[in-house]
Design a protein around this nucleic acid. Structure first.
Length: 195
DNA sequence: TCTAAGATGGCA
DNA sequence: GCCATCTTAGAA
């Protein structure tokens, strides 16, 4: 599949529940300092928005969540359970806590440092928000950065004529806001964290 | 200050 | 089903 145009910040400056399904089928590009590039097809997302009790910015801006209030087209990376990291694409207007959690990627190639005994199924090495961050070396140092080509992270549009088969359901792993149907994934995709 | 819980993942 | 591992929000 050919490389698609870069996603501009203005395209992400919409409410997260609008952007999240649109990001399915788009490509996340991870560029390392030595120039190596890995691409992952986004196959699962979740939206977090103002007024949503599961949103990290629901109560107030804090040291931990401040990047979630940033401008559309930047990143918000946080640590969870002391061990895992999760990557969000910040959306909507600056000043609003609004972001899309990237929950699973289908990688174009498996980085050589991946321990294959730990995940024998190659298509599942990035099936989960913590897994994809570990595989692609994403941690809080990449939080608050702008998504742009040449930067550590960037985004590309999906192929324009691609007819997506999307499933919309409720979000995973949260205890509040469980009724909101703000999770989307590519139907019948084996790289999704949970079908 | 103290403490419980967390947008998870791996293993028994 | 259990636990690693540690930061943070919210309570006291």
């Amino acid at each position: 599949m050919d490389t698609q145009p870069t996603i501009e910040p203005s395209w992400l400056a919409r409410p997260a529940p609008e952007v999240a399904p649109d990001l399915i089928g788009c490509t996340l590009v991870r560029q390392f300092e030595d120039g190596r590039v890995f691409r992952g097809l986004i196959v699962e997302t979740e939206a977090y928005a103002p007024g949503d009790p599961a949103c990290h910015g629901y109560r107030r801006l804090s040291d931990r969540n401040r990047h979630m209030f940033g401008a559309a087209g930047t990143t918000y990376v946080y640590q969870i359970y002391g061990i895992h990291h999760c990557l969000n694409i910040v959306t909507d207007e600056e000043g609003l806590p609004s972001a899309v959690l990237i929950r699973a990627l289908q990688l174009d190639s498996i980085p050589p440092w991946v321990d294959r005994t730990r995940e024998p199924k190659a298509h599942r090495v990035a099936a989960g928000p913590g897994k994809l961050c570990r595989i692609l070396g994403i941690d809080r140092r990449l939080s608050g950065q702008t998504l742009y080509p040449g930067q550590p992270l960037s985004l590309e549009h999906r192929a324009p004529q691609w007819q997506l088969d999307l499933v919309q359901t409720t979000r995973i792993g949260i205890s509040q806001g469980t009724d909101l149907p703000w999770r989307w994934y590519l139907d019948r995709c084996s790289a999704v964290s949970k079908p």
